[in-house]
Nucleic acid binder design. Structure first.
Lengths: 251, 251
DNA sequence: CGCACGCTTGATGCTGCTCAATTTGTGTGG
DNA sequence: CCACACAAATTGAGCAGCATCAAGCGTGCG
């Protein structure tokens, strides 16, 4: 269950930092979190925001620190992970337009998780104080925040259920089914992240993920490096027994 | 990790139901969720609310159903649990003044968890539609909801970290330390819930909880039935290695 | 008093972790 | 473009943690 902590291979790289007002923020504006907010309030958030580009494996935040910024993944991928002594475990893999550390920012309490980039990634960083300020003044933003948090809360509940009620290989099988849906239900697709990260997210040792992928050969899956082919979806579903209240049907 | 589902022993008991307007709601009014809400809005919530008394082991809600009410534990205790086929696992143990299914009510989506009473319990039930309505109209309530949800979210994150990074006996040791703090740091206290429920919450089989309690005899704990005595707290802490970012220092 | 249920204890086996060795893949510099 | 260096992935062997099955014990309640 526990993986040894990896050190970042890239230290002290100065990420490029661009003031938000200089860039196109139409896309950000359309995110559910900001869609209904008043324009003046949105400008307030944007005023102090920065879009930063980070290389892969860069630690973005560390658990225990107080939040300075709300983070939004613009492109790339981010891993949220928790540590205990020198073990760590992945709690979530975040893709574009996901926000993170919203709960810590709103409560102004220390981060419970650390975060690192999994690939070259651009992050929009909005000053925490501005978020809390607009949150107080703008009811639409407050409501959107609730909706976002409730959504995240439900994701965590599903994760916990899966972790406690299924075996590792079952979690893997369901993960592959979900991934296939995301990729437009095609039979063949690539794993979007490294296997060791996936293993950590699924709560298993990397060695066991390897073995589990081999085992799924018996259940309609073919694996070649990071290329997954689902040969017999019905068979895989029969093995995985996906369940709507665990396997995330909601957006 | 999985426990066989228990059937409720009490069926079809008609719980006593009392319209909220007839009872004392000063206490409810002071909960963080309602403290800053406008009086007229609070009356709106209370208008359709009911205080119901349930016997032990009564199923209150079932995962997959749509939310009719926001629930608040007035006294007694409630278990939130998730099921998969005929296994189940406890996700949370709720004590007085805890609210539950807030996320489902706000998003108007199906419950992800079921709930049952662990003892005779009174629950305040506020119609879901009223909650959503006031949530839209009252910014203070919206903000309080965020704070509550963010708090719950963080509790779940801590649970996941503990589940993935510690062994069962370590989770137990830390649970006992936390319980002792709640009970005013006295050396002796009672387990507040049945051991089988505790086992499920801690993610272990009831048999293993028994054995784990015996093992903790080596680490400063004495157990007699449900009476726990912490003989040597320093020793127990040395074994448990509690960690603030997992073991809930925040309210 | 006896039955039911929760708890305990023992025996056994599976799941999945750990350690170690090898192979594969990837990024870097020549 | 190739060679090298390093990280990731795979494979095997052994073992710890924990579930399961089974039997016996204690206690509260009808």
């Amino acid at each position: 269950m526990t993986n040894v902590k990896r050190e970042a291979t890239v230290d002290m790289v100065q990420p490029r930092s661009i003031p938000m007002r200089d860039i196109d923020h139409k896309h950000i504006r359309t995110l559910p979190l900001f869609a209904d907010i008043a324009s003046t309030r949105f400008d307030e958030l944007v005023a102090g925001a920065f879009l930063q580009r980070f290389p892969a494996r860069m630690e973005l935040i560390r658990e225990g620190d107080l939040p300075d910024f709300l983070h939004i993944v613009v492109d790339g991928a981010v891993e949220l992970f928790g540590t205990l002594e020198d073990s760590e475990t992945a709690l979530a893999i975040l893709k574009p337009s996901a926000t993170f550390v919203l709960a810590a920012v709103i409560r102004d309490e220390v981060y419970l998780t650390s975060a690192r980039t999994l690939q070259a990634t651009r992050i929009l960083m909005i000053p925490a104080a501005a978020v809390r300020d607009v949150f107080i003044k703008d009811a639409a933003f407050a409501r959107a925040t609730v909706s976002e948090l409730a959504h995240r809360y439900r994701d965590l509940v599903r994760d916990i259920k899966g972790n406690k009620l299924r075996t590792g290989i079952e979690r893997l099988a369901n993960y592959l089914l979900r991934l296939q849906e995301e990729r437009g239900a095609k039979g063949q697709f690539e794993l979007p992240i490294e296997k060791r990260t996936l293993a950590s997210y699924l709560g298993m040792a990397p060695e066991n993920l390897s073995r589990a992928l081999v085992q799924l050969g018996e259940h309609g899956v073919e694996v070649k490096a990071s290329k997954i082919t689902i040969i017999d979806k019905a068979r895989l579903r029969r093995f995985a027994r996906p369940q709507p209240l665990i396997d995330a049907p909601d957006a």
